[in-house]
Simulated scan of single mutants.
Amino acid sequence: MPTSPAHSSAFADGKILMGKTGDGVGTITFNNPDKRNAMSLEMWEGLGEALVALRDDQDIRVVVLTGAGGKAFVSGADISQFEQSRHNAAASEAYAQKSAAQRALLAAYPKPTIACVRGFCLGGGLQIAMYADMRFASEDSQFGIPAARLGIAYGYEGLRNLVSLVGPSQARLLLYTGMRIDAAEALRVGLIDRMMDADQLMPATLDIARTIAANAPLAVQAAKITIAEVLKDESRRDMDAIKRIGDACMDSDDFREGRRAFMEKRKPRFKGR
């Protein structure tokens, strides 16, 4: 079984790579190592294309996001574009709108996502990681939001996700100071879910992704939908959506297959229906 994906498609002039491991796991690699994978507008567009391709691929059940080069997941936005595209409030708003569709796509992604972080995960890169369902990081990773040092405001969605993970006081500490924290501290405050040796990070992440991919897709989707609704204000929760996916699980062929496999003491073969 392979421990790393084969890249099968490239977007944004090769700065976004898409791969498949052959066992239900898709990968997206930020491939701009000369700039520590800093995100340009073109890379945001390429990320959207890769996300859509994996979303629409019926063989893909889990998506892993990672960075090339071993030095960074994503070190933030490409600051070289700021003078032209983010020099004032109006330009910054136009810049944000150009990546809004991709951010919304990742935030509401229907399949499980895992951010596999090695090295720098800063600013907009941390926002990408926080959109993922889970974050696994190497021991040499660093996290931070340097917005205060650049004189810019970190957006609402990024802050909402940050506060939901680490709480308001830790969010204030990170935002007010612009400080960086290491992986051990990120694990302690809840910003990441697992910390491991750098050489074990991708193999371990793919093992967990394969475990998820081998489970019943409707049951995994039910968990994803229900947790998302739990995190909303009570007045905004869609209880009908929770009931629909619960009923779909109970009426599915996969539920019958799971019961039969249990009785026959064999591994189930789930098909997502």
Results as ranks from 00 to 15, higher is better:
Met1Leu: 10
Met1Cys: 09
Thr3Ile: 13
Pro5Trp: 09
Pro5Gln: 07
Ser8Asp: 10
Ser8Arg: 12
Asp13Gly: 07
Gly14Ala: 09
Gly14His: 05
Lys15Val: 06
Met18Val: 04
Gly19Cys: 09
Gly19Trp: 01
Gly24Met: 10
Asn31Phe: 00
Asn32Gly: 08
Asn32Thr: 03
Pro33Thr: 09
Arg36Glu: 07
Glu45Gln: 14
Glu45Val: 03
Val52Met: 09
Arg55His: 07
Asp56Lys: 02
Asp59Ser: 15
Asp59Ala: 15
Val62Lys: 08
Val62Thr: 06
Val64Pro: 05
Leu65Glu: 03
Leu65Val: 03
Gly69Leu: 12
Val74Met: 13
Gly76Ile: 07
Gly76Asn: 04
Gly76Gln: 02
Ala77Asn: 11
Ile79Tyr: 08
Ser80Thr: 15
Gln81Ser: 13
Ser85Gln: 14
Arg86Trp: 00
His87Phe: 12
Asn88Met: 05
Ala89Trp: 06
Ala89Met: 09
Ser92Trp: 07
Ala94Tyr: 00
Ala96Val: 06
Gln97Val: 06
Gln97Ile: 02
Lys98Asn: 12
Lys98Ala: 15
Lys98Ile: 00
Ala101Lys: 13
Gln102Asp: 05
Arg103Phe: 06
Arg103Gly: 08
Ala107Asp: 13
Ala107Leu: 12
Ala115Tyr: 02
Val117Thr: 03
Arg118Gln: 15
Leu122Val: 03
Gly124Phe: 07
Ala129Lys: 04
Met130Pro: 00
Arg135Ile: 15
Ala137Asp: 05
Asp140Cys: 03
Ser141Pro: 04
Gln142Arg: 15
Gly144Met: 06
Ile145Ala: 08
Pro146Trp: 01
Ala147Cys: 14
Ala148Phe: 05
Ala148His: 02
Leu150Trp: 01
Ile152Cys: 04
Ala153Pro: 01
Tyr154Lys: 04
Gly158Gln: 06
Leu159Thr: 01
Arg160Ala: 14
Arg160Leu: 11
Val163Thr: 11
Val163His: 07
Leu165Pro: 06
Ser169His: 11
Ala171Gly: 07
Ala171Met: 11
Ala171Gln: 05
Ala171Pro: 01
Gly178Ala: 10
Leu187Asp: 02
Leu187Ala: 10
Arg188Leu: 12
Val189Arg: 13
Gly190Ala: 02
Asp199Ser: 14
Ala204Pro: 03
Leu206Asp: 08
Ala213Thr: 08
Ala214Tyr: 00
Leu218Pro: 01
Leu218Asn: 10
Ala222Asn: 05
Ala223Thr: 11
Ala223Met: 12
Ala223Gly: 11
Ile225Pro: 07
Thr226Leu: 10
Thr226Asn: 09
Thr226Phe: 00
Glu229Cys: 00
Asp233Gln: 12
Arg236Ile: 00
Asp238Cys: 08
Ile242Lys: 03
Lys243Asp: 04
Lys243Phe: 02
Arg244Val: 05
Arg244Thr: 02
Ile245Ser: 06
Gly246Asp: 09
Ala248Trp: 04
Met250Asn: 11
Asp254Asn: 10
Phe255Glu: 09
Arg260Leu: 13
Phe262Pro: 00
Met263His: 10
Met263Arg: 13
Met263Ala: 13
Met263Asp: 10
Lys267Glu: 13
Phe270His: 14
Lys271His: 13
Lys271Glu: 14
Lys271Cys: 07
